[in-house]
């Protein structure tokens, strides 16, 4: 089985572990990822100004590339996924917008490509994973942090319930881990506010991690490279501002998947996680 794949900018730079573990996991379960040729930036973030069609050009060019490769395109980064899916929603609802942009481009987009996230692919192909499980994550208590962009706006993303989703918990259960419920799993981590008002992101990430800790989580798992940065890299700043704070390791969902599929320690790429997950993983005999 082959699947077109759009990594996006950050998966080649700061989120290499996400890119590499996704690739090795899909390889193990027998899905070959065809990276789109000559891809560009997805045009993040999705513009909310309805009178701006310029910003739809970048997503449209990617979707055009994708439609030449196959009916679905796999996008692991939450922000790219959100941008492409929302643009795609406009192209399917507003034919006029699509026609106007198509008119200016050499390659035309038909508006029919489906943007899918690896968590959706796994939900629909659970046996593929189950048959290859080597090391179930027994005992590991994981808080599934959805963040914002996978879920909202619900009527366009159609990913899961925006207030009480469960697809991520089902994923952790599939790997043999114990998902931990916590209220702030759908709350914002501070997103791009980290660039010019880091205090807002420090405060938001502190609340998320604290809430997960209070509900018994050993670690948090996320899909988004920006959530990962805010939750992981900002912990140094969080500690300075909130003396009661206790560290918590953060994983990309694909790192846990790779672990359960028996990828070796090198392949897990845990070295880039600033809060070391070693103690937690050793506690459950997973490393």
């Amino acid at each position: 089985m082959r699947l077109p794949y759009y990594p996006g900018c950050t998966l080649y730079t700061k989120a290499k572990p996400l890119n590499e573990t996704i690739r090795s996991c899909f390889n193990i379960v027998g899905v070959e990822l065809d990276e789109l040729p000559h891809w560009y930036c997805c045009g993040t973030t999705f513009t909310l100004a309805r009178d701006n069609r310029m910003s739809l050009i970048a997503p449209l060019r990617i979707l055009t590339k994708a439609q030449q490769e196959g009916k679905q395109v796999l996008v692991p980064c939450s922000i790219c996924y959100n941008t492409l899916k929302r643009a795609n929603f406009i192209f399917s609802e507003d034919r006029e917008a699509l026609d106007i942009i198509n008119e200016h481009l050499e390659e035309k987009y038909d508006g029919k490509e489906e943007v899918i996230h690896p968590l959706e692919f796994i939900r629909d192909n659970q046996d593929m994973i189950r048959n290859k499980l080597k090391k179930p994550l027994s005992g590991l208590k994981v808080g599934c942090y959805y963040g914002c962009l996978l879920l909202r706006p619900a009527e366009e993303m159609k990913f899961d319930d925006p207030e009480s989703p469960s697809i991520f918990e089902d994923f952790v259960r599939l790997l043999g881990g114990e998902p931990v419920e916590f209220a702030l799993k759908v709350e914002c981590c501070g997103s791009y506010l980290v660039v010019n008002t880091p205090d807002a992101a420090v405060n938001a990430s502190y609340k998320v991690i604290k809430n997960a800790r209070e509900n018994g989580a050993d670690a948090l798992v996320t899909t988004c490279p920006l959530c990962f940065y805010n939750l992981d890299a900002l912990q140094t700043k969080i500690r300075q501002q909130y003396p009661d704070f206790k560290d918590m390791p953060i994983f990309y969902f694909s790192q846990l998947l790779a672990l359960a599929l028996g990828v070796d320690e090198n392949g897990l790429q845990l070295g880039q996680n600033r809060v070391s997950p070693e103690i937690v993983l050793k506690k459950y005999g997973l490393l």
Binding site: G8, C9, T10, T13, K14, A15, C41, T44, T45, T47, S55, C77, I79, C80, S191, Y192, L193, V194, V195, N196, P225, L226, F228, Y229, A233
Partner: peptide, 20 residues
């Protein structure tokens, strides 16, 4: 923006902040 900080941030944080 502090240069070291900019290098540390993931590109999509910068792209998002620039666009907003």
């Amino acid at each position: 923006i502090d240069y070291e900080y900019m290098l540390d941030l993931p590109p999509l944080a910068l792209m998002s902040a620039f666009s907003k």
